[in-house]
């Protein structure tokens, strides 16, 4: 479903961000992507949604290859992915509903489809009553739920979450994490980059650890954890 084959990403000014990564993510998996800041987690995720392309190697996502995909194909691919960030990235001048509907609008979906889908996504994230609120009227946890609803509204096969709880307190973090688990339970794969070791320790999910651009531990492959690196 998602396959990295000897992927290296080098930036002209800051050097190598990801080095010789080979990784496979299967259908419906839940993966923690962890490691210190600057380890290459975000770059790795960006290559999944093809915001960045590998310098060498290949990323294949649901049949789309990073080597050959046109910008149009990338756009089409992203409609099958859900992407969530630490800073939510909601539009301040739109309500929760409009923010979620935005993801459908830009794909040319008709209004008659958008309404019901938005309502369903809002219910799924537990915000059915807050559809007409603006982001500034919502708590951090609620804003992230709106962002997740926006990511879900296109029925993605994978949800990519880059530090989704980085800006949230413990209580909100637990809520968001539970939500991601529910989403995963209904069949959507989840790749979650996080610093929150507390969260990881308590879970039985696959954990991939990065450091200096390389994968230093993958619980699926039983590599020894390189804690000293």
């Amino acid at each position: 479903m998602i396959r990295f084959t000897h992927v290296t990403k080098t930036y002209p000014r800051t050097g190598t961000a990801v080095q010789d990564v080979t990784l496979h993510v299967g259908k419906g998996e839940f993966i923690f992507l962890t490691g210190p800041s600057g380890a290459g987690k975000s770059t790795l995720l960006k290559m999944v949604y093809m915001e960045e392309r590998p310098t060498t190697g290949e990323v294949r996502v649901s049949g789309t290859s990073s080597v050959t995909a046109s910008s149009r194909e990338v756009a089409k691919l992203r409609r099958k992915l859900g992407i969530v960030f630490q800073d939510f990235r909601l539009l301040d001048n739109r309500t929760a509903e409009q923010n979620i509907g935005f993801a459908l609008e830009v794909t040319g979906a008709p209004q008659s489809v958008i309404g019901p889908k938005v309502a369903r996504a809002l219910t799924q994230v537990g915000l059915a009553a807050k559809g007409t609120s603006f982001p500034r009227e919502l708590s951090g946890g609620e804003q992230q739920r709106v962002a997740i609803a926006r990511a879900l509204v296109n029925d993605p096969f994978v949800l990519i979450a880059d530090e989704p709880t980085g800006n949230l307190d413990d209580r909100a973090t637990r809520g968001i994490f539970q939500l991601l688990r529910d989403i995963n339970a209904s069949g959507t794969a989840v790749i979650m980059a996080t610093h929150n070791l507390e969260l990881i320790r308590r879970q039985e999910f696959r954990t991939v650890e990065m450091n200096r651009g390389m994968i230093v531990f993958d619980s699926d492959e039983q590599l020894p954890p390189a804690r000293d690196a």
Partner: peptide
């Protein structure tokens, strides 16, 4: 810029 980057993220084509 922010709106455009979100549009891209959710799969809007360049033409759109």
């Amino acid at each position: 810029a922010k709106e455009i980057s979100i549009m891209r993220l959710v799969g809007a084509t360049d033409a759109y």
